[in-house]
Design a binder for these strands. Structure first.
Lengths: 189, 189
DNA sequence: CAAAACGGAATGAATGTTCATTCCGAAATA
DNA sequence: TATTTCGGAATGAACATTCATTCCGTTTTG
């Protein structure tokens, strides 16, 4: 077996959560898509909530790891740091687009536990620190960090949804264009 | 009675849908928040899906109306048109913030019917035409309209969420700043 | 080496719960 | 009083979860 049952379950749940949401996805749907018995899910996860929280924490963890990988921490060139973050998010989306869409659409779920919220907060703090450093250096606009992050987030997520829906083709120029648009949105001119 | 039962139901449902989603909101929750009996809901709406679709269509309709109100259609100054759209969206958010958040979080719901999708498409088409006109005039970046719209959308929604959460205060300067950031994101420099 | 016994993993029918919806007596209205 | 509106208990369907049973690879026994 190339994938363990646990992985089959997580993969199936991810896809379903992305297009139907947590509350709109039933356990039988997950078990059917995963090709396992309904009871098997409970051998790996305490309940449906534990499943979504595990998934959430794993996805956030991987994204943070991806962004941190090779991050020019000591550099004081904000443009370079921005470029790294954007490139790594693109890399993450390429590897697992659904994970990115899942994170985006589940960050405010009423079913997320403390650990999930904390994991997400770590990601957010990282990004806020980047923004605030830029604001201190008068490179980034003095707007709420949340709004600036959402602006970039919104653009990338929408872009990836278009790509997923097959409406547009992913090309290096396209990605570079969105990156530039994001940078122009947050920087001071 | 200052509000009809129908309005009480719609208002209660709107709030619940915004913070729990459609599937996460039960009919008893709506009836309790509205202060009416569960059965009463079915005097005004055929079922839960009809309720969410009515709400969606009314919200989209009001938003389109708000944006159209005083739109400088004949002008060929894109910056002016952009300013109008942004101002009217801000006006809409001021009047009914939850409606804006509701629209944002329910556009892809599996429960939306044909009429809802069509209503939303009308809004989207309007915005796309604005983007494409700008691209033809070489004022707006040649990126997918969806991505550019999402970029602006993401910024405004996040900003309003911050305001709603009380994290930041809504000031004219703040709104002007976000407007400018959005414009810088989509225009060619 | 073959046969039997074992035990953890997997299953899906069974269970109790929660939900959307219905229905009918009560209350309001005319 | 007749008619309409309302409320919330009642209903049946769908759900999350459980558990007695099956399955199958491994180990023990003869």
């Amino acid at each position: 077996m190339s994938e363990t049952k646990r992985e089959l379950i997580l993969d199936a749940a991810l896809v379903l959560f992305v297009d139907r949401g947590f509350d709109g996805t039933t356990v039988p749907m997950i078990s059917e898509k995963a090709g396992v018995g309904a009871g098997t899910i409970y051998r790996y996860f305490e309940n449906k909530e534990a499943l979504v929280n595990t998934l959430f924490q794993e996805c956030v963890g991987e994204l943070i790891e991806t962004i941190n990988d090779g991050y020019p921490r000591t550099s004081d060139d904000l443009r370079e740091q921005f470029g790294h973050i954007a490139n790594q998010v693109i890399r993450y989306a390429k590897k697992n687009l659904n994970a990115l869409l899942f994170l985006d659409s589940h960050t405010n779920g009423h079913y997320l536990d403390e650990a999930s919220r904390e994991a997400y907060m770590r990601l957010r703090t990282f990004l806020c620190e980047f923004i605030e450093r830029g604001q201190k250096n008068k490179v980034i606009r003095p707007l709420p960090a949340d709004a600036l992050i959402a602006l970039m987030d919104g653009a990338f997520i929408a872009l990836n949804k278009c790509i997923k829906a097959g409406e547009i083709e992913e090309t290096p120029e396209l990605l570079a264009g969105v990156k530039e648009a994001c940078w122009d949105a947050i920087r001071i001119h």
